[in-house]
Amino acid sequence: MAAALTLTGIGHAFLGRTILDGISLTVNPGEVVALAGPSGCGKSTLAHIAAGVLAPLRGHRDLPGGRCGMVFQDPRLLPWATAADNIALPLRLSGVPRRDRRSRVEAVARQVALLPEDLDRYPAELSGGMRQRTAIARALADGPPVILFDEPFTALDPALKRRMQDLVTDAAATARFAALFITHDLQEAARIAHRIVVMNPDGRGLTGECRPPGQPGQRDDGAVFAFVRAALSSSPLFAHLNDLDERRLP
């Protein structure tokens, strides 16, 4: 089975300082991979390279489907466009005729529990959760084979975060897209991912990976809690997940 996204030997530097080096990662179709790592290790840079926003200094990315969607930490909605027009952006970019866009927009809006009357509102009129739902609907709109999530729920309160995680899990199960989910929250990774990949704290390669037992959406809170407690207390893979101060990096 061909991978939905392959990153090979990715390296990147900002102003002469190496941020990433020797990162190779594969995401299979229908698979949700959580990319965990401490703050400042280069996860977001890797997500931007995977999305094609940044060109890597070394290595290459292979996206056989040719297109991807992305959900950012802040929703990044066009302030002058209604929720419907924001969701329709990928459809517009891929040349879907205007008359066909509305039905698709309404379908993905239903999927993320946005109400029809929310669609005519501007981002300034939506709550934080509704904005993030709109951003998720936008990423789902044209059915991309790969969706990248760059710490999308970090700024949300715990209840809303759980609801959004469930939403992503349901959407991934329904639409069968491959997803690379950037997070530094192991609890979140354990809830939504098939596989958790951990980056080295200095961004030079991957520390390793593990598969939480069960499938996303089927793990109850007890199983997630048990996995996270075991991982943080005894697994060397996650030893540096929470203990790095990024300001001490050279």
């Binding site: 931007h48 999305a51 094609g52 926003v53 297109r67 991807c68 969607g69 992305m70 950012f72 802040d74 990044r76 066009l78 002058w80 952006l89 990928p90 517009r92 970019l93 891929s94 936008r138 990248l148």
Partner: peptide, 24 residues
Amino acid sequence: RGLDAMATAFGATALHRLWLLGLR
């Protein structure tokens, strides 16, 4: 610039970005 990056991630060309974001 964040909106520019968002549009690029969704496959917007430079002309798309000018039309949809720059002019606005």
